[in-house]
């Protein structure tokens, strides 16, 4: 069985852009399971159900869960990994607690399921997995101070997680376009459509630069 794991942000991006309807179609093509960790379900459904502004998005996500499109994994113990990731970078002798429990649960779940893809739309976790040097440089630039690294802990983290294939909802929707999932959107040109959808995702929080959007549009078949 194949698996894809989504973190909170990637589902929020799709929900806020009214793109959740693509997930059942994508799942059919994937022929595997789409998972969210237990704590992500709390962020996507339980909490926003109490906020009128996002209640309908929460309802739409809950519907996908009830229909089996998104499966909620049982809670896993990730205390060790959570403590590890939040004691890698230091500033003025203080450990920088950069990652939240739910975000870590999604990452650990992706690893345990040997997920084909791990979708994360926010920046910090993606940098942690793919390029911790860039993360350190960013931290130093923003804090105007030296950031020290616990090398042995960073090596443990990298050994465990750097093999994961990370993607964003922008790549998912681009590939969905190539698979003709948006075939009924004939009112505008391909470029206009992709520009609209990718900017819509960016403006609602996906960590993608405008430069990357332009490049993506040129690469989509």
């Amino acid at each position: 069985m194949k698996f894809i794991v989504f973190d909170t942000g990637s589902i929020i991006s799709l929900a806020m852009n009214e793109l959740l309807w693509t997930l059942p179609l994508l799942k059919k093509r994937f022929k595997g399971e789409f998972y969210i960790p237990h704590s992500v379900k709390l962020e996507l459904v339980d909490k926003p159900m109490e906020i009128k502004r996002f209640k309908f998005e929460a309802i739409n996500i809950l519907k996908l869960i009830q229909e089996g499109v998104l499966k909620v994994h049982e809670k896993i113990n990730i205390e060790e990994e959570f403590n590890l990731v939040n004691s890698i970078f230091f500033i003025k002798g203080n450990p920088l607690k950069l990652i939240q429990m739910g975000e870590m649960e999604a990452l650990v779940l992706a690893k345990r399921l040997n997920a084909s893809l791990y979708f994360v739309d926010e920046r910090t976790m993606r940098l942690f997995v793919e390029d911790s040097n860039s993360l350190r440089r960013l931290l130093e630039r923003k804090f105007h101070d030296r950031v020290s690294v616990n090398r042995s802990k960073l090596d443990i983290f990298k050994k465990k997680f750097s093999s994961l294939s990370v993607a964003r909802s922008t790549e998912l929707m681009s590939v969905a376009y190539e698979m003709d999932i948006f075939k009924d959107y004939t009112v505008v040109s391909k470029n206009d459509f992709l520009d609209g959808i990718l900017w819509g995702l960016k403006l609602r929080g996906v960590s993608i630069s405008s430069e990357e959007i332009n490049e993506m549009i040129s690469l989509i078949k």
Partner: peptide, 20 residues
Amino acid sequence: HGISLGRTAEFLEISQFELM
């Protein structure tokens, strides 16, 4: 500053929907 979205939302007690 580099703190993850989830951690920031949790810290300020706001929803990730709002913050994103």
